[in-house]
Amino acid sequence: MQRLRLDLDPLRETLLLTLYARALDTKLPHPILGDTYSADLADAIDYDFTKLKIKPSLVCSTALRAKKLDEAVRAFVAGHPDAVVVDLGCGLDTRVLRCDPPPGVDWYDVDFPDVVDLRPQFLPERSLRIGADLTKAGWLDSLPRDRPAMIVADGLLPFLPGDTFQRMTRELTTHLNRGELAINGYTRFAAWSMKYHPTIKAIGITAAQGFDDPHEPETWNAGLTMVEEQLLTRAPEVADFPQPLRAVTRLMSHSTALSRQGTRILRYRF
């Protein structure tokens, strides 16, 4: 099989971090997500993934947060078979394939135009694609207003400058009217420390936004009400983490403050 070389700038190249982390998860003795779509996709790309220096902690946290966000999407769609799903900053994520929504659901994958244009080269066209710069207004017009909506954002928050994420959330919840928002929530420290991952550091990201209090988004004037905070250090899947990561994660789980510095999934209703 001929592999395809991608011409990505450093910011867009970060989509390969999460893609490869999900692919590596499939090689674990006990995969957490088991995303064989991502494994096949990584094999189809001509790229030296070893230079990303992905550690076991990133593999496990990426796979676990994806699994929990998938579960949130599936639960919402099960209760709203006419739903709209909006996957923000989708990159080459295979969530639409993993969740396999029924025909009545309209799924929108949103990212930079050149990123969403890559998706048909690697993935079955199971979604509608919106190419947009999320820091700018005007891309919401194609989204239906009169149906329940599930908004999901995995790993997006730290990459948006200033209050862009808050503003975008206000615009989304105003346009979409009712539904849920599910994100992996970074604390300020977690977002700050992410900048020092070798690949992220090379990009020179300075935005790195986060928030500590899971109720803070309720103050964004976006009509959000917190439904759930999942501290993933306490997830049963930690039993499948390799050692010594499993032991360290279990130690962290005894402290809410420390657990929040790891991976957490936040879900809000609007």
Rank of each mutant, 00 (worst) to 15 (best):
L64I: 02
L64Q: 02
R65H: 12
R65E: 08
A66Y: 09
A66D: 07
K67Q: 11
K67V: 03
K68I: 12
K68T: 06
K68C: 15
L69R: 00
L69D: 04
D70W: 02
D70Q: 04
E71M: 06
E71D: 15
A72Q: 10
A72C: 10
A72T: 08
V73Q: 03
A75N: 13
A75K: 11
V77H: 09
V77R: 06
G79A: 10
G79Y: 14
H80I: 13
D82N: 15
D82H: 13
D82M: 11
A83P: 14
V84G: 02
V84N: 08
V86Y: 11
D87N: 15
D87W: 05
D87T: 01
G89V: 03
G89C: 06
G89F: 13
C90G: 06
C90T: 14
C90D: 08
L92Q: 01
L92F: 10
T94L: 04
V96R: 00
V96S: 01
L97Q: 06
L97E: 10
R98T: 10
R98Q: 09
R98H: 09
P101Y: 02
P101L: 05
G104P: 03
V105G: 06
W107H: 05
W107M: 10
Y108F: 15
D109P: 02
V110S: 04
V110F: 14
D111T: 02
F112D: 04
F112H: 08
P113Y: 07
D114E: 15
V115T: 06
V115L: 08
V115N: 01
V116P: 08
D117P: 04
D117H: 12
L118N: 02
L118C: 07
L118G: 01
R119L: 14
R119G: 09
R119N: 12
P120T: 08
P120R: 03
Q121E: 14
Q121I: 13
Q121P: 12
F122P: 08
L123A: 01
S127N: 01
L128F: 08
R129P: 02
R129N: 09
T135Q: 14
A137N: 13
G138Y: 13
W139E: 14
L140M: 12
D141I: 06
D141L: 07
S142F: 07
L143D: 12
P144Q: 08
R145D: 13
R145C: 14
D146A: 07
D146Y: 02
D146F: 00
D146K: 03
D146R: 05
R147S: 09
R147W: 07
P148H: 04
A149V: 14
A149N: 04
M150W: 07
M150E: 14
M150R: 07
I151H: 01
I151W: 03
D154Y: 04
L156N: 00
L156P: 00
L157C: 00
P158M: 05
P158Q: 00
L160R: 00
L160T: 00
L160F: 09
G162H: 01
D163Y: 01
T164I: 05
F165I: 09
F165G: 00
R167K: 12
M168C: 06
T169V: 10
R170P: 05
R170C: 08
T173N: 03
H175F: 03
H175W: 13
L176K: 06
N177S: 15
E180K: 07
E180Q: 14
L181P: 00
L181C: 04
A182T: 12
I183L: 13
I183D: 01
N184K: 05
N184Q: 10
F189Q: 10
A190W: 06
A191E: 05
A191C: 13
